[in-house]
Structures are given as C-alpha cells and as structure tokens.
Design a protein around this nucleic acid. Structure first.
Lengths: 201, 201, 201, 201
DNA sequence: CATGAATGAGTCTTCATTCAT
DNA sequence: AATGAATGAAGACTCATTCAT
C-alpha cells in the first residue's frame, strides 16, 4: 500500500525544489524586478508565508534560480562529455542552443538575461554569481578547444559563448527564432573549419 | 558678455533635453525597474513634479532614452558614412565599440540591455521600440556588406551585431573590458578576410 | 470692413463668459471633483495659466457655474412669468423639465447634483450657495401656488421641486428618460387637480 | 469569562466587516472623491497597507459600501414584510425614512448621493451597481402596490421612491430635517388615499 | 494682461518582509 | 514547520496653484 503522506523531510525538500524550479522559470520569463514572491509562490503552489522557511529573502530565490540554471548546464555538458570527439561535443552544444530557439526568441538565454539584469545592481553580490555561471560554460568550452589542440582555446571559448549570447539577444529583441537557426549553422561551419596546427615531430 | 538668462523656449527645450540625457544615462546604468523618476529628476536637476510636464509617464521617459540611443547611433553611422570604403566603415564601427569597452564592461550595451529588460514585459510596446533600434543598426551594417558585394549581407550583419551584443554581455558579466578588445581584434581580422566572389567578366 | 480685433475689455469679458459656460457644462457632466481646471480651460479654449486672471481659485469657478445655473433658472422663470395663469406657469415649468429628460437621464439636474456633491464638503461655503439656487426655485414656485390661493403654498413648492429632484435622480440612476416623462405627466395631472378653497364672500 | 483572543478567521472577517462599515459611513458622509483610503483605514482602525489585503482597489471598497447599503435595505424590507398589510408596510417605510431625517439633512440618502457621484464617472461600472440598489427598492415597493391591487404599481413605486430621493436631496441642500417630516406626512396621507378600483364580481 | 512652465503636497497602489498562532 | 494576515516603506502619478517673463 502506497501511503500518500510523504515523510516530513521529503515534503520539505519537495517544496524547496518546486520553489526553485518555479523561480528559475518565472524569473527567466518575467525578469527579477517584475516578479513578485507571490508570483513564484503561486506557480510553486506554496503559500506565500511559507516561502520564508526555505528562502530568507527574495535574493536567495534568485540565487537558487541561478543554481538551477547552473546545474542544468552541468547536466547538459555532462551528457556532451559522453561524446568522444571534443569537436562533436561543441557542435552538439550549438545544436542544443538552436533546439532552444523558441524559448530564446521569447525570453532570451536564461543566464544571460539574468546576468544583464543583475549587473545593473549597485550591490554586487548576485551579479557575480550570474557571471560565475557563464564562466562555467566558458571553462567547459575552453577545455574542449584545448583538447582539440587549438591555440588560444580560451579566446575561442569567449568567441563561441559570445556568439551564443549575441544570437540569443538578437533573436529575443527581434522576436525571431530563425536568427538562432542561421547563426547556429554558421557556428557549426566555423567549428568544422578550425584546424589544429601541425605538431612538430 | 553672455547673458545667463535664456529665452523661455530654450529653457523648456533644455530641460527636456536634460531629462532625456539623464534618462538615457541612468536607465542604462541602473536598468528601467531599479530607476525611479526621482533618480532621473535628480540627475537632470529638475523637480520631480515638473517631470510630468515633459513626459506624461515613466514609459515615455524610457522611450525618450531609446530615441536618444537611437540618434546617437545615427550620429555614429553618419560619421562613418564619410569614409569611402564600406569595409573601413565597418572596421571603424568595431573600433568604436572597442573604444566603449569600459562602459560596456560596467553596464553593457545601452540598447542591448534595455532590450533585454523590456522584452520581459507582458505589454509589448516598448520592447518593439528597443528592437527597432537594433534593427536600425542591422540595416546600416547590412548595407555596408551589400556595398562590398558580399553574398547574404543581412546574415553577415546579424553575425556582426550579434558578436557585438555577445561580447558586450560577456564583458559586462565578467566585468572584463579585455573581452571587448580581444573579440574586437578578431572581428577586424574577420572583416579583412571577407572577399567578394569573382564577378563573371 | 469688420475689425476682428475686439476691444480689450470685451475680450476679457468674453473669456470670462466662456470659462463660466464651460465650467457650468463640464462640472455638471463630470462633477466637481473629477473635473480639473485644465478640463475647463480646454473646453473654454483658454490657456490654463490664464484662468487665474478671471478666477482666483477652482472654487470660484464652481461658484461661477452655480451662478450660471441660477441665472438660467431666472431666465426660465422670467419667461414663464409672461404667462398669466400661475397654474400654467407651473405646468410649463414641468414641461420644461420633461423637455430636458435626456440630459437629466445622463447627468441629472445640474443644480441638484452639484448640491449633492458640495454638501459632502466639510467647509460649508459653496454648499450654501447651491442650496440658495434651489431655494430660489422654491421661492418662485411657492409664489405661484400662493397666487393660486392654495393653502400651504411653500409646502406645495417643496413637494413639486422635491418631485423634480427625485425624478431627475431616478432617471439618472436608471439611465431612463422615460421616468421623467411619466412623472412629469403625473405632476401635470396633480397641478390640475389642485383647487383653491372657497373664499368667504 | 469571555476570551478576548479571537480565532484567526474571525479576526480576518471582522476587519473586513469593519472596513466595509467604515467605508459605508465615510463614503456617505464625505463622498467618494473626497475620501481617501487612509480615511477609511483610520476609521476602521486598520493600517493602510493592510486594506489591500481585503480590497484590491479603492473601487472595491466603494462596491463594498454599496453592498452594505443594499443589505441594510434588505434588512429593513425584511422587517417590513412581517407586517400583513402592504399599505402598512409602505407607511412604515415612509416612517423609517422620516426617522432618518437628521442624517438625511446632513448627508442625504446614502444610496442616492452615491448614485449621483458615481454617475459622473466616464467608466460605467459602479454607477450601474448604485442603480441596482435603487432598483431593488423600486422592486420591493412595486410589489406592495401590486399586492394592494392598484393599477400601474411600478409607476407608483417610481413616484414614491422618487419622492423619497427628492425630499432627501432637498432636506440635505437646505440642511433642514423638517422637509422630511412634512413631505413624509404628505406621503402617508397619499398612501392612505389610494384605493383599488372595484373588482367586477 | 498673457501664458508656458514650475512646484510640491497628496493619493492610490505594490510588495518584500515579518508576525502570531 | 506552516500560514493567513499584517506592516510600512516606497513609487508613479495628479493637480491646484504660483511664478517669471
């Protein structure tokens, strides 16, 4: 017999998870400033007053949303790591971005738009965290370029991630997912064209 | 001797201009949602109540800031148009971007960050305007590529502007102006490498 | 040749008259509190800043509107006085009311609704004036009943004016001009039915 | 011994009731436009910010006040319904009005004056509700006349309610409660004089 | 006299955060 | 832990009135 009553701890963890997921989604869609705690609570189906048992301030929820996006990124790169060729990993990354084109055209890149909004703050706490998530992506990308034996792998990483942020922003501003498709194709082509210099024997 | 008392009309227009300039700057620095009318009024040295004589709503001020950025863009492209070679114009554009690297690292691209914030709104009025400013830049850029006789000039424009938005966002998120310098150099190189296909004789 | 330039005094008096007429109309339609000086100025086609040359405060404009309604009432009773039979005068008064049924259904009796609004004020200055206009109507009506040799003419006047205010209010609240028509018919019948007691010879 | 600590739900409902009662009273006394939310909150002894927990807008408070007046009217007619003779009910209604003469002389009929003020609004939402309350009174009154077998009972209802609104307005404008007394006496006499036509046997 | 512009007090409304139970 | 209710500090916006020219 399955008891519908969950153990306390489980219930608590569940609510926390629901709040985090709700925050990740709504903050992406509406932005930090236009989202109220009540919005997040409603989506998470948690009573407003209860939110404060899990997150002491609104900023902690923003932080949780950032972590959520960060761990989704980790999931993605984790899956990509299963591919043997670093070039294939990067190409699959680009394809994943293009796969998100409709969301990007509507709301932009979750981390990128969050970073933009948080960077406007005088208080520089959360903006650093947003930057850290992006840096994580840069690091992983740089490793792939390095594994390919390409020179200046970190610069290449900046170029690739920068292209992603740029095309997301444009797709969003123009409300046109095709921007993602076209730029994605160009990036794939670019990745294919990169050649490691001859190794001295 | 210059009389410090300005004619009436001049004073009114002057205030409007001051408010617009203040809005353009503060909205860029603090973002729309975190900026109060009082902030803008203070910077423009205009009493708060008086703001409404010039702009009926906060949104009108945002709109004015967008127009300001748009006309600054026009000024820039106007100056670039004096160069004879379209390629030189594009390279000078990139150099202008790099010249703004410190501002970009601190606050991002004015139009880009504004677009990101406005796109979060349910009410799609101002976000369209932000998109229009970006489209203006795309159009001008596309014309240069077209003048160079390059294929798919509009796609190239998207690539270039996208790169600009991406590098600004990354420079901002990482608080590192060097991103602008390095990506700028790459873009200059890329522009130089573009060759028009042979014309059939 | 007709000179379009009016003498100064005339122009001034004209503006004052336009402002008064505008106030009378707009205050009736929108109520005192929901009407701004700018509304009145716009309708009168007088620049806002100029209003204060003719009326030192908003209340003075309300006052002017009351006077306007009062003198329109005088005009009406003046015309009715030309009828020889006081009963005919009263019946013509009722017919005039019914003739205004569409305005009444939309905005109520100008003086009555103004009185209602002004009576809410703590400061009892203007409300007294509104009461005075109504009293003027009561006085004239009372005189007619007195001339008919009817007992308690002032009570009859209260009954008649009260009926007018009541039917205007109901017509307005129900947005139904027919209320005016039906009640008007009843009042005419009632006036006809009133008989003076036999005089002792 | 009565515990002064009330259960939660009771406290919430209590505040809502206090706010509604305060709104009903103050809006009647000061009018809608001259009453601030702070006024109502103060009378209800509720912190201003808390008002919005119960009523999302000022208009909702106006609406609540209207409902309050409506249900007070229902209470009254409910009590009158216990009288067996419809004529006695109507006479008792008139006596109830006269009993309120001092309030009427100071502030007018709550529903009537509210209707007058709300009818000035461009937005026709609340004015319809005010009309509905008056219609409720008309309906009940019409039923009594119908029960008496009188012809055109609805017209008679309009006449009676109209007389009530008219005498309230006059009493208010003239600041004279005696108007209510005298007109009330006349109405009682009128009600007594009404005879149902002979029924054909 | 005229008038565009200026002013600042006041009002509604929102919301993050806290509290009592 | 849980939660409905409470709180107060802003913020956008309005408008009668005044002022400078």
């Amino acid at each position: 017999m399955t008891d519908s009553v969950k153990p306390r701890a489980a219930r608590g963890a569940d609510k926390r998870r629901r709040l985090t997921a709700a925050a990740a989604r709504i903050l992406h869609e509406q932005g930090v400033e236009r989202t109220t705690l009540a919005d997040i609570a409603r989506v998470a189906e948690v009573p407003v007053g209860n939110v404060y048992y899990y997150f002491k301030t609104k900023d902690e929820l923003v932080q949780a949303a950032l972590s959520e996006h960060s761990s989704r990124l980790d999931d993605l790169t984790g899956r990509l790591d299963e591919l043997t060729d670093p070039r294939d990993r990067l190409k699959a990354l680009v394809e994943a971005w293009v796969g998100q084109r409709d969301v990007a055209a509507r709301y932009g890149c979750p981390t990128g738009t969050l970073a933009v909004e948080l960077d406007k703050r005088a208080d520089g706490t959360l903006d650093v965290e947003a930057g850290a998530v992006i840096r994580r992506l840069l690091d992983w990308t740089g490793q792939q370029f390095r594994a390919l034996g390409l020179p200046d792998p970190d610069d290449l990483a900046v170029t690739l991630v920068s292209a992603y942020q740029g095309m997301s922003l444009l797709a969003n501003a123009l409300r046109d997912p095709d921007v993602m498709t076209r730029e994605g194709a160009r990036l794939l082509h670019w990745l294919d064209s990169l050649k490691a210099p001859r190794q001295t024997p």
